[in-house]
Amino acid sequence: MNNSRVKVLKITACAICLVISALVSLMIGRYEISFADACRILLSCLVPVEKTWTDLAQNMLLLVRVPRITSAILVGAALSAAGASYQCIFRNPMAAPDILGASTSAGFGAALAILLHLSSGTIMIWAFLASIGCIILVLSIARAGKGSEALNLILAGIMISSLFQAGTSYLKLIADPNNTLPEITYWLMGSLSGITMKEVGFVCLPMFAGFAVLIFLSWKMNLLTIDDEEARTMGVNTRLIRIAVVIASTLLTAASVSVSGIIGWIGLVIPHIGRRFVGNDCRFLIPASALLGAMFLLLVDDLARNLYSTELPLGIITALIGAPFFIYLMLRRGNTI
């Protein structure tokens, strides 16, 4: 009884920390905005407030920082929740959104759209379609294959992922080195710069749908980590739940990639921190991972935009933190994961 109350408290603390770090992130940046001004500008969106700030400050805050911070929170939360779910349904602590090729295929779709000089809204749709297409392909290969379906899914994911990777490499080869190639390359490294509220709004709906499914199925996801037949004797329709969770997690991944490019490692690292923090019960793990992931990406993005005069791609920073953590996991893999 107390045990779960402690976990709820921990998750609430995470949520409060996230709100605070979001407010602090609003103020930091090359253009200084005071805390009082930031609060007043935000307030002015809801009720009329006497204007004591410059137009530049208002635009900076509402058109640049708010969308950027919102997208960092959404993408971090989505990738982490997707990672935690993949780990459960594939019974594999090393699983991550990249495992099904969801990220790389979304990257391919976007690169193709950039190459064809399509508008930014269309780039998102292409990334989305490629990712969903990839997942359908992976799922059908895994179902057609013989043997363990959970293992087949991972193997098929790796194969299809490498195919899309090759496709992206080819696109880079034929891209115009003066305009499209740098755009594709930078986008693939992961970045949240230049995001507008319209783009954030576009991915909101699929993301919330994905989160809702994962939260709704979070208890039954626990039973997918044990033997399938055992779970079925407890009245759980394992196949249906596994497919629903895969689709929801992929939706989250595709939406993230379409807004931010490929940001690796978060989906692997954050769920493990979440497991240490609140244990393995998905009812607590999924929300905790989402909140921790949101905070983590917010922090990484603050670093990316403030560390140097030019912006660092997010993928570089997350890899710098993620790769050593992965090695650490490999070295101390025991049953305590």
């Binding site: 980590t225 033997d227 244990g279």
Partner: peptide, 12 residues
Amino acid sequence: SADSVFNYTVEE
């Protein structure tokens, strides 16, 4: 026996 990749508590 029940082997789970992830370590649950007895209560869970």
